[in-house]
Design a protein around this nucleic acid. Structure first.
Lengths: 220, 220
DNA sequence: AAATTAATTTAGATATATCTAAAAATATAT
DNA sequence: ATATATTTTTAGATATATCTAAATTAATTT
């Protein structure tokens, strides 16, 4: 199945919009996501439906099919692998990679992506902490544990912080730690369970054991 | 100046076709190069002419302008840098890279290519021995001629092979000839223009005149 | 349930790309 | 130099994409 650049983008948008809900995706939602008009979406929907990558009944929204989901996940896989390449190999900042990856994700080559994956050391997540689907479209939810359980010299990405405690969140904000932040645990202090960490390859600082217990990291 | 994928391909074709000759490039030649019809070429020519990347007078062929050449050379630069990446980093064979590079060359990003160039160690030629233009479109050339023009008992180094013909590249791979291979021309057969050569001071073998014409050697 | 509002589709308009066939211009041969 | 052949352009056809505006369907309110 060969899809155009635009068709792939529609499919990706539909995939993202259907995540977390069983309902069909509305025409208007797709139009908004892709900065286009509902009429254009209607046209494209009929086209994608004919290719069996979505299910569609008039006025009822669309559902992505298994084959459509597989394609969308391959595009997402490519996008995220390229992001890893840009950040790890070409020293892009993670806020600079999106637009380029948006182009690179549409390159068609049977071997390119598997070679790139290997070259990058088969990473499990992109620079923002999002998981990278495998060749079959499977997403492994990466194992995660509190920062306090990490060994010295290990890496993790912030995936969860307690949302119930404003004073903690304010502090995290102040030290520049947010969801997706890359954490390197440099040293663990036995005395008080505090830890010396580096955030996003930047400044080093000590974190109390109390805080470290409350920050969930995905193992990298 | 922002050109579409297709416009860039036209410009690249016109650049290649005008190399080595002062005459304008004919509509038919462009059509053949791009596997399209003369009528379509006429349309595109008017479009590119309006953008001042080519000069054009009806029925008189086209000449690439300085600004057009600059754009073409940037596309070529991108193509060749990506080829280096594919071969050096992703272990592609040099006969596998052309189609992928053909896609990658159209990725638009101000920083991507300079970062890639740096990552690859600012290479001066691609895996086929073609020179890589710099950011300003300058090409550094070394004196070279086809193997078929070499005298008996002369030496050369493989610097270029056509990147468009996988069957030739596969054959060269099989006989152990690659970029940088040291070639000694032992004997030239007048009858069919074939040549007896030695590769890297190793085994001797005959090369047809057809192949010899397509292999560029730097004079040693 | 009827009326109103919102969402979606359809119809038709506009723009673009690329083709075939015919016309026009140029090149070549006698 | 004229006739013939070739190349190139133009005109018109077809296909595609995307928009606006109108029509239709569904959802919400009263």
């Amino acid at each position: 199945m060969k899809l155009s650049f635009t068709e792939e983008n529609y499919l990706k948008a539909i995939y993202h919009l259907s995540e977390g809900s069983e309902d069909g995706v509305s025409t208007n939602a797709i139009a908004e996501e892709l900065n286009t008009k509902a009429a254009s979406v209607s046209d494209m929907i009929r086209k994608l439906s004919k290719k069996k990558v979505i299910d569609y009944q008039k006025y009822r929204g669309v559902q992505i099919t298994d084959s459509g989901r597989k394609i969308a996940l391959q595009v997402i896989r490519k996008h995220r692998l390229w992001e890893v390449f840009l950040v790890e190999k070409l020293d892009f900042n993670w806020d600079e990679v999106h637009d380029v990856a948006e182009q690179l994700e549409h390159i068609k080559s049977p071997v390119l992506i598997s070679r790139l994956d290997e070259f990058l050391g088969r990473p499990s997540m992109d620079p923002h902490g999002d998981p990278i689907p495998d060749e079959n479209g499977e997403i492994k939810v990466s194992p995660q544990m509190p920062l306090s359980d990490f060994e010295e010299a290990s890496l993790g990405i912030v995936v969860k912080v307690p949302d119930s405690d404003p004073s903690l969140l304010r502090h995290l904000d102040k030290i520049g730690m947010r969801l997706g932040s890359k954490i390197r645990v440099i040293e663990k202090v036995e005395f008080d369970n505090s830890a010396l960490i580096a955030i996003d390859q930047g400044k080093e600082l000590y974190l109390s054991g109390e805080i470290a217990k409350n920050i969930m990291l995905a193992v990298k």
